[in-house]
Amino acid sequence: MTPQTGRRLQPRRFLLLALVLAGALLFGLVAGHEWASPARLARAFANSGGHDMTSQLLMVWRLPRVLAAAMVGALLGVGGAIFQGVFRNPLAEPYLLGASGGAAIGATIALLVPLGLPGGPVLAALSFLGAWGATWLVLGAAGLQGRPDTAGLLLAGVAVAAMLGAVRSFLMLALSDDTVNLQVVLSWTLGGVQTPDAGGLAILALLTAGALAVSLPLARGLDLLGLGDDQAFAFGLDPARFERRAVLVGAAVVAAAVAFGGLVAFVGLIAPHIGRWLIGPRHRALLPASALIGAALVAVCDGVARAALPPAEIPLGLVTALIGGPFFLILLMRRLRA
């Protein structure tokens, strides 16, 4: 195993990550259509019940959105760490097993079919069900002939994702009205956090805390999987059963992120990598570290999405890929050189 094997949780590194997240949240609050100085923010916090428009906008609209963006990022980070652990593959990302395709179908139906139900909750519920359902479909398809190996799961994931993508495209064409609705679906697939109300924010906070709570018990198993199936078995782990459980947990975590943030690209891939470089490969530390890093990344990118081209807003997924890509490449090159 790696040199970090024996280390404990490394509180100093976590403190650093917490500071980075705090900085990212502050950036998210400052950035926007109009930049707000920290002093302006402080006044808004002090004056949260007042009638001043800017203060109210910061408190009622921007603050919940920044918090929601950070929590979506945390969920993606945790989901990504689980998927990379299960597949023992650094290219594994949370949308690998069809979650994005399934979520997009759910969202397409929610956005284009008049269901006569409140829009926001239906969109979140259907995209969650789509994302999680797609993963069940992949597990079912790959497991038809007994225990699926990792390659079998991945191939089933690719096939299901292709099918779901086609169904989604067909639904978009068949259900859309003539004018602008397609744009709504397209922009959803590019990711973006909608400012939640207090109830929505509370649900998201519960989901994020719950995601960490159900993921942390997977840490030991994910570590053992990294040793190879035989070793893991020798340590008392049934790799097949564990993989299945971990994938379902990971997919549920990602589905929660998708329900609140659409298809935000790249964060689930890079957050665990950065976490591994900073904290090491032990999942007990890596899972919360990935959450912190994902949260910071999405909070910053969401701020950039709102501030780069005012009054327009760039879909969040484009920003995460555009900023995350080069950032990740620089880290990667440094690491390769070292």
């Binding site: 259509h33 109009e34 906008l57 609209w61 922009s187 400012t195 709102r306 005012p310 009054p311």
Partner: peptide
Amino acid sequence: AQASPEAVIA
């Protein structure tokens, strides 16, 4: 055509 709701509100 996609504006930030924040910009519309402001």
